[in-house]
């Protein structure tokens, strides 16, 4: 790896990076207040950046685009279930990058690739590139959903897939609204866990 080139590229794209940081951060802050449209934009942009990051990392150990997409999805779900750990007074990009890096190292550990074999970049290259060529991941949503308890699966189906409002789902399931919210939260956390288990292979 040419470290000098990386640094050069980094400084060339510095302007781009700073504007991205402020844009992404604004989107994150809006999402934290419950703005679904801002959140969708945020996740789409993060998806492209994470794809570039994971493809770059996986290239070095000769793994392909499908594994990268698995990791993109795992990281996006991690961003979602852990979004309360983002401190609004701090920069947003280092937070996402730390999650992506953690998920990548965890992936290496799971797949028994020694982290010593390939240096995981310390440089903040997450925002440097975008990759808009998604492929399908190896994860199957229906199969993942069968790993949830029937009740939680039903609620995820209503609220997250069919787009019913929380109160509608609550009436249909005969549960309180807060119980529905808790179930959605638990369900997504359980999905994140199932996903990282699937990605082990």
């Amino acid at each position: 790896m040419c470290y000098g080139c990386n640094q050069f590229l980094g400084s060339c794209e510095l302007m781009n990076v700073t504007s991205t940081e402020s844009e992404l951060r604004a989107l994150m802050l809006a999402s934290s207040d419950g703005d679904g449209a801002a959140y969708r934009t945020l996740l789409e942009r993060l998806g492209a950046q994470l794809r570039a990051y994971f493809r770059g990392q996986l290239n070095r150990i000769n793994r392909g685009a499908v594994e990268a997409e698995d990791l993109v999805q795992e990281a996006l779900l991690a961003v979602h279930t852990r979004r309360h750990t983002y401190d609004p007074s701090q920069l947003f990009t280092p937070w996402v990058y730390a999650i992506a890096r953690y998920k990548f190292i965890d992936y290496l550990r799971r797949t028994k690739v020694s982290a010593k074999d390939i240096p995981v970049d310390e440089t903040d290259e997450l925002t440097a590139r975008d990759d808009h060529g998604p492929v399908e991941s190896s994860l199957d949503l229906d199969r993942l959903l069968t790993g949830l308890s029937p009740k939680v699966k039903q609620i995820i189906q209503y609220v997250k897939l069919d787009g019913l409002s929380v109160s509608e789902a609550a009436t249909r399931c005969g549960m309180s609204e807060s119980a529905v919210k808790v179930s959605v939260h638990r369900g997504l956390k359980a999905l994140a866990l199932l996903m990282s288990k699937e990605n082990r292979v």
């Binding site: 419950g34 679904g36 959140y39 969708r40 996740l43 995820i156 787009g163």
Partner: peptide, 10 residues
Amino acid sequence: LIDILSTNLE
């Protein structure tokens, strides 16, 4: 996945 996560965001 993005659809799922951003639908009915809390």
